[in-house]
């Protein structure tokens, strides 16, 4: 029995490794500058990262943040402002670090204030407010943020799509590894304990506030990294772009579609939703946003706990059917 489990874990790792190798090799077979597939993977990696960041605070810890776009936008603005000021350069690791850290600090400050006082819905509202405040601040930041027009960056610096692709892949893998390590550790158990019953968790000596802030900040850090990469990608940082609510809505959707509070959920959800969005925007560009809205409604109506939940709940059934079919097939042959 033990062996079987170990084997299962091994197959999981091997399958994961194969997928990663596939992603790494993709640009070798495809023309990254032209390939739609590469662009698709690039955006999906970013969404997976943000979705996992949200998953950590909302899915595992149970605190539904609606302010991820604030972290994304802050990351983008930090990158743009430091680059414009000549403090950092194009694809500067320092810029990434600063952007991530900036988002992390914002989350920590916001977290100390909001998480210590507010619970549940109030926390969601508070974080929503943070995003809006940042948006208004960016709009009114004068020459510092260049208002509604936003900061235009030197797009001649562009070299190759591969840079973006591999950076996104790296950020995503980094996030996934961090999440796995966290969730497998005592921290992960503590987070889940907080989600299940906060009072009980704190009665058992778990420093609830500290763990919540930790989860919130890590999520913000990786989201800030994505914002930074996005600034380099579009060479133009302005409020409707980087502080758009889409940067919280879409990842949250992906996470819930796949199954919040599971590791595979956001990944699965990101791929399913990205594909769905891409297909509709190709075939029905006019009604693409209508479809997104309807999609959210349908998913919450019919699969409120997500795909992963559905799969795990029906696993034995699916497996039994499969085995039965194989069995019948073999009997027929014999």
């Amino acid at each position: 029995m033990l062996r079987l489990n170990q084997m299962k874990v091994h197959t999981k790792y091997i399958a994961g490794l194969i997928v990663v190798i596939f992603f790494v090799l993709c640009p070798l077979f495809l023309n990254s500058e032209r390939s739609y597939f590469i662009y698709f993977l690039y955006t999906t990696f970013i969404y997976i990262t943000i979705a996992q960041g949200w998953n950590l605070i909302a899915g595992y810890t149970g605190q539904v943040s609606l302010g991820q776009h604030a972290f994304f936008g802050l990351g983008a603005y930090i990158t743009a402002i430091t680059w414009r000021a000549g403090l950092t350069g194009y694809f500067d690791p320092l810029a990434f670090l600063l952007s991530g850290t900036g988002a992390l600090l914002l989350a920590a400050i916001v977290g100390v204030v909001l998480l210590s006082k507010l619970r549940d819905d109030y926390f969601s509202l508070g974080t929503l407010g943070i995003g809006e405040i940042l948006r208004v601040a960016a709009l009114n930041g004068g020459s510092f943020t260049e208002g509604a027009a936003g900061i235009s960056l030197n797009s001649t610096a562009y070299k190759s799509m591969n840079h973006y692709y591999y950076t996104a892949l790296f950020i995503m893998l980094f996030t996934l590894v961090v999440i796995v390590l966290l969730i497998r550790s005592r921290v992960g158990l503590a987070l889940i304990a907080i989600r299940e019953d906060e009072t009980a968790a704190s009665a058992n000596g778990i420093p609830v506030l500290r763990y919540k802030i930790l989860a919130f900040s890590i999520g913000a850090f990786v989201t800030g990294l994505c914002g930074s990469l996005n600034a380099y990608y579009i060479f133009h940082v302005h409020p409707p772009g980087v502080l758009s609510l889409n940067w919280v809505v879409i990842p949250v959707l992906m996470c819930i579609l796949g199954g919040a509070g599971t590791f595979m959920g956001p990944i699965l959800g990101a791929f399913v939703l990205s594909i769905a969005f891409e297909l509709t925007s190709i075939w029905m560009p006019e009604i693409h946003p209508i479809f997104s809205g309807a999609f959210i409604v349908l998913v919450t109506l019919f699969m409120p706990s997500g795909i992963m939940y559905y799969i795990t709940n029906h696993k034995s059934m699916i497996m039994r059917r499969l085995r039965l079919t194989v069995f019948k097939w073999m009997n027929q042959k014999a």
């Binding site: 809505v249 009604i287 946003p289 209508i290 997104s292 809205g293 309807a294 999609f295 959210i296 409604v297 998913v299 919450t300």
Partner: peptide, 8 residues
């Protein structure tokens, strides 16, 4: 979802 749907 309803908001996004109706808005669009």
């Amino acid at each position: 979802g309803l908001m996004v749907f109706m808005e669009s």
